[in-house]
Write a protein that binds this DNA or RNA. Structure first.
Lengths: 294, 294
DNA sequence: AATAATTATTTGTCTAGGACAAAATAAATG
DNA sequence: CATTTATTTTGTCCTAGACAAATAATTATT
């Protein structure tokens, strides 16, 4: 039995939102403690996780809450299962291997495939496998975090790696204030890195106002930002316009994530709504930058 | 000009708390937009950061808000400056070096000093330097994140490193739900690691209820948790008692952080309120475990 | 005088129900 | 069929009050 705030942190839904859902849709209706404070059960946590995933798949609350718990579960299973061909080796990795074995396995695959193929053929499917496994109850949260932590660590090492060469153009990857959209940005950085661009990733959030100065100090060729689906479109547009304005025109600006899928057109801005576009974008960018310098 | 929620995220103070501080202490009093919603200035963000640091130094709101902005600044400077002897090399690293240079410098020091000395002579002082530099305005937030990200990455690599040996006892380091107390736990893990214990760190938050099963699956010899100062003492006590109960008695339980400094005595629980205690604790633990197995 | 137990103050989190703009959908227009 | 305009949906913010947990201050006890 947990408080509304604990619940809010676990499922990443604001307390105001939780209360108004209860008022409007009748879910989740918690028990009350002696003071009249809300107390949520483990089961409600689980059901809310399903709601959250459906939401991130594009369903809106009125659709979601029109269904009952079983209906939501069914719908989510359907959504996750449609891209079926499950890689059994990855499934085993996700479910059973020990941390060291996971490390060894992933490193082996990375070496064999190279970073780009690793991202598309291992990292992305693995993340999907984890989601699916969590959804059908075959993978615990702890296990999911364990595996994704190993993956994250491995990918970060790829960025640090060698090549402090002075001639390679450097890109700066940032998480803006209010974002926690870590893994997508990391995958993007690895892809750019494997195209031959130097990538510097700052995972902790920082204020927009400091970005231009930082970009200048680090002498980077481009700044990349990722906006999650929760980021208000209007705000994303405003942020990007402001940043584009403050930033040296020679520094490219790259925006990714669901919040900028369309509409956000801006002079001198590279939009990148899908990971799949990155190989093309990065090679083009690299040749442009090379031409510029040389 | 930012909203109350954005402010809340930037300074890590809940919206409720911000509103009630305004009501009770008259700070921060924001401007209002056309709807009557609060809008905070950059300066207020900065002043709140100072408040937050004073709070984490043990000052309570009534003392803090009895002072004006200048008084708070003075007090904070005094607090941070009393441990004076500033390492100029570290200061330069924090302020000026490029990411690659930081990496090289830190790696060099790590190699020379070994992990334990590195933690006490480099990592801890560096973190203090960053705090101080931020406080007196000579280090930007961006710079602080940049440097601490490099440090974090380097330390994490130390944990992964070699030795998947079957005979080494493994410890599991966890962040509980509602915690984001990353760096302290990481430093602790590195210290245990350098004593010869295998350390597995899961940075993402996970529910308490899943810990026992995870510990069993991974076959670890101990579980280590860190509670930040914000964690309610009562809750920490409850959590620890519950976990101790559910956990196999043979698995040790280690608790650290400001929230468990005293009082939280429990059978079969190792309390560790200061990093300095870890070398002693870890070597004792290791010999116990070796005796047990061998 | 030092320690333990009480009482008072401080502090953060919670409650309720109302309001409203931004986003998404439906409807109406060219 | 593409745009514009109305309508619904949705999340965030508002006020003001309540109360327990944590801390400080006071009193009682050894």
């Amino acid at each position: 039995m947990i408080s509304i705030q604990q619940l809010s942190q676990e499922v990443a839904i604001g307390t105001d939102t939780l209360r108004i859902w209860e008022r409007r849709y009748g879910f989740p209706v918690p028990q009350r403690d002696s003071r009249g404070h809300r107390r949520y059960s483990d089961q409600q946590v689980e059901e809310l996780r399903i709601v959250k995933m459906l939401q991130s798949l594009g369903y809106r609350p009125n659709k979601i809450f029109a269904l009952d718990a079983a209906g939501r579960k069914t719908l989510l299973d359907k959504e996750l299962d449609q891209n079926q061909p499950e890689n059994t080796a990855l499934l085993q990795l996700a479910k059973q291997l020990s941390p060291h074995e996971i490390d060894r396995d992933l490193r082996g695959r990375l070496e064999k495939l190279g970073p780009t193929n690793f991202v598309f053929q291992v990292a992305v499917p693995l993340i999907k496998t984890l989601d699916r496994g969590w959804s059908d109850g075959t993978i615990s949260i702890a296990r999911e975090h364990l595996v994704s932590d190993r993956l994250e660590q491995l990918l970060k090492e790829q960025l640090a790696d060698p090549e402090p060469s002075a001639t390679t153009p450097q890109l700066l990857f940032l998480t803006l204030n209010g974002e926690w959209h870590k893994i997508g940005l990391l995958l993007a950085a690895v892809l750019f890195r494997s195209a031959g661009l130097g990538c510097l990733l700052i995972h902790e959030e920082l204020p927009l106002s400091e970005v231009p100065q930082l970009a200048l100090d680090l002498d980077v060729a481009a700044v990349a930002l990722s906006f999650s689906s929760h980021y208000p479109t209007r705000q994303a547009k405003k942020d990007l316009a402001l940043l584009r304005n403050k930033l040296d025109p020679k520094i490219r600006l790259i925006a990714g994530g669901q919040a900028v899928q369309d509409g956000v057109a801006l002079q001198n801005l590279i939009i990148c709504s899908e990971l799949e576009q990155i190989p093309a974008i990065s090679s083009k960018l690299l040749s442009e930058l090379r031409a510029q310098t040389g």
